[in-house]
């Protein structure tokens, strides 16, 4: 049985919702009652059935709506998708990876057929059936990276590896937590992470770079990151700050449950075979507080995490203005009882 894709919006009337099954599979990012940075990287291997890790590239009920939202963002601002001239080969690598993984995980929705370099790609949810020559950009309606990332959930950064560093030289970025590809394009790993507080002092980026430059083909890795977003808005970019920034002043005790969303990024890292680059998919999952607190363990734990979050992190994540309102709302759902270890809800699948 295939996925039932929701008709919903991530702007204007904000009709985005998670079904009960999708609430339970939400990648809750806190394994204990507090949070601090760590190099929390692990092998990106297939996880339990019914979780977001069931397939290494996850497709869910929001797929069609997210792709429609991406098309709207790109129509307004084409610079959300950029690829420096030397990154075309890496774009083909990414096209192969995403077609293979989506066809493997969801054969009822996607089919890839190859005859040498003649490839046929069928994407049923989006009504696409294209035949093209792998490696020949003139046979696709867009460059290879843009073509496939208009059909894949999550943002994608393609990093060139040279001189012992990684360089942000291509990407499709429309569902970002307040950073800009147009600003970061061409930067190296330390340059684009410069604004992150506390982590530099802990030497985290030096260790992380060493790890990432040694990622091997066939051995992808992953980590979770998180922030919060007011209203289920995928595009919280600096370019559109004037649209979403003021949302943060609208949180009241009455609307916390509907307006405040936990935003989790499942970040994975893959070595690309032809270009020797790294692709860094950043897959965004949103869940509103009303949905999250249907799992009592998550409600208790989130209360403790947000209450005790160091001030620098709260500022960096943009929570300062509504944190007291949120903590007060969550407090009512925290009876002080202990929470079980691990990420999952108490009602595990």
């Amino acid at each position: 049985m295939g996925i039932t894709f929701r008709k919903e919006t991530f702007r204007d009337d904000f009709t985005f919702r998670n079904s009960p099954e999708h609430i339970r599979r939400f990648p809750f990012p806190f394994h204990e009652d507090s949070y601090m940075y760590a190099v929390n990287i692990e092998p990106h291997v297939v996880g339990p059935k019914g979780s977001v890790l069931e397939n290494l590239i996850d497709v869910d009920e929001h797929y069609v709506a997210e792709m429609q939202d991406r098309a709207l963002v790109l129509a307004e601002d084409p610079l959300r998708c950029q690829s420096l001239p030397h990154m075309t080969l890496a774009g083909w690598d990414l096209l192969e990876l995403l077609m293979e993984q989506q066809a493997l995980g969801y054969p009822e929705h996607f089919t890839l057929t190859r005859d040498g370099d003649r490839w046929r790609w069928i994407n049923r949810p989006l009504g696409i059936d294209d035949t093209f020559t792998f490696g020949d950009t003139s046979t696709l309606p867009y460059g290879p990276m843009e073509y496939i990332t208009r059909q894949s959930q999550g943002d994608f950064c393609i990093l060139d590896q040279r001189d012992g560093n990684l360089w942000m030289d291509a990407g499709m970025v429309t569902t970002q937590a307040d950073w800009s590809l147009d600003f970061d394009i061409g930067m190296n790993f330390f340059e684009w992470h410069a604004p992150v507080p506390l982590a530099h002092e802990k030497g985290i980026f030096i260790r992380a770079l060493k790890f990432l430059t040694n990622i091997q083909q066939g051995k992808p890795a992953r980590r979770l990151n998180w922030t919060m977003t007011i209203n289920p808005r995928l595009d919280t970019s600096p370019e559109n700050y004037h649209k979403w920034g003021p949302d943060r002043t609208t949180v009241t005790p009455e609307n916390v449950g509907d307006k405040v969303h936990l935003r989790v990024e499942l970040q994975s890292f893959w070595r690309l075979p032809r270009s020797n680059g790294i692709v860094f998919p950043i897959r965004c999952y949103l869940i509103k507080m009303d949905e999250l607190v249907t799992q009592p363990k998550w409600a208790r734990r989130l209360h403790r995490v947000i209450r005790d979050l160091p001030e620098e992190l709260a500022t960096y994540k943009g929570l300062t203005r509504y944190r007291p309102t949120l903590v007060e709302w969550l407090l009512k759902l925290d009876d002080g009882s202990p929470t079980s270890p691990g990420f999952g809800p108490d009602s595990v699948f």
Binding site: H86, L89, D160, R162, Q217, G218, P273, S275, N276
Partner: peptide, 10 residues
């Protein structure tokens, strides 16, 4: 698996 420590600078 192949590992590339001598990659072309494209």
């Amino acid at each position: 698996y192949p590992v590339n420590l001598f990659s072309l600078d494209l």
